[in-house]
């Protein structure tokens, strides 16, 4: 590179390096511009509405003129009669769901990858991802029907093996609720969740496999030592993101599976909000406050898990 005495001395300091970096990255900034603009207008623009959580929103007054009530809704939520149990129920149900579906999805992706017959593999994959499209309402109806002791598959099998009368109906029981919830969710989403891992596995370099084979590794060992490490970073990121959604467990499925007998374990935050919101004019404010609380917990969980992941993985897998 030529240097001439005519050139001005390079500016130093933070401002200078900022501009230098900008000149280097300007195309990247250009790419970023439309998404950022979208974000600012459509996501940050409405954010002022989160203050509904601190006001008593009435449509007549609009958001800015509704009465300010500070932490009233939060206090109400924390001191409500079954706060403890609904919080615990939400956490437990969600974590159970996340962990099980994560482990099984990764496992299934790895197993599918080992299938040598392309046709069989494709066939299996297609079958496993179809349940994802079934709506929650139908899913619950199917579950209820299959485990119906009188005329469902469960009852039919019971009678087939010589049972008298009717088998134990566990559908409404509190002991069964969490398992029904989680495993029906696994049935529904397992195949779908493996898609991303399958895509990641597609980028495993053949060289690694060949090297491993030359070293005498069996197929199974190759799964553990080649496939798994390849998708582990992706998997960890996915897991971290899932932790960021733990508190916002869906309302519909829990509501449909809820019966009087299992309410002690099946009452979660979203069903609570639904019940309390009905008939009172304060659904928006109260719901927003609880939503904020959920978000705060999600945020903390995500940052924690992300930090753990950073520390524990040698490649420093982290979200940011």
């Amino acid at each position: 590179m030529q240097t001439t005495t005519h050139k001005r001395p390079k500016r130093t300091g933070r401002g200078a390096s900022f501009i230098r970096n900008f000149k280097r990255d300007w195309q990247l900034w250009l790419l970023m511009l439309p998404p950022l603009a979208y974000l600012l207008i459509f996501d940050y623009g409405p954010m002022y509405g989160a203050q509904i959580a601190f006001r008593d929103y009435r449509a007549r007054s609009g958001i800015w003129n509704s009465q300010w009530v500070g932490l009233q809704w939060f206090r109400k939520f924390f001191t409500s009669y079954n706060f403890r149990s609904i919080f615990t129920n939400t956490l437990v149900l969600s974590l159970y769901s996340v962990v099980v579906s994560f482990v099984l999805a990764v496992g299934l992706a790895l197993l599918l990858n080992t299938i040598r017959s392309a046709r069989f593999r494709k066939f299996t994959q297609t079958i496993t991802y179809i349940p994802h499209f079934i709506s929650v309402v139908v899913l619950v109806a199917i579950v209820n029907q299959i485990f119906n002791p009188v005329n469902g598959l469960y009852g039919a099998l019971f009678r087939l093996f010589g049972g008298e009368g009717y088998p134990y109906d566990f559908r409404g029981m509190d002991t069964a609720f969490r398992h029904i919830y989680v495993w029906s969710g696994v049935w529904q989403n397992l195949g779908w969740d493996t898609i991303i891992y399958t895509a990641a596995l597609a980028s495993v370099s053949q060289d690694h496999h060949e090297a491993a084979m030359i070293d005498g590794a069996s197929r199974w060992k190759r799964v553990i030592h080649v496939d798994l490490p390849t998708i582990l970073p992706t998997a960890m990121i996915m897991l971290i993101m899932k932790f960021g959604r733990v508190m916002t467990i869906g309302f519909e499925k829990v509501y449909l599976l809820q019966t009087r007998l299992n309410e002690t374990v099946s009452e979660v935050i979203s069903t609570y909000v639904y019940k309390v919101g009905m008939g009172s004019g304060h659904a928006f404010s109260y719901g927003t406050a609880i939503g904020l609380f959920n978000s705060a917990v999600n945020c903390i969980l995500l940052i924690t898990v992300n930090w753990i992941s950073k520390r524990m993985s040698d490649r420093e897998v982290s979200l940011f």
Binding site: Y168, R171, G172, L261
Partner: peptide, 9 residues
């Protein structure tokens, strides 16, 4: 009393 009282929806 059948337990199905509580599971039929």
């Amino acid at each position: 009393i059948s337990p199905m009282c509580y599971t039929l929806a």
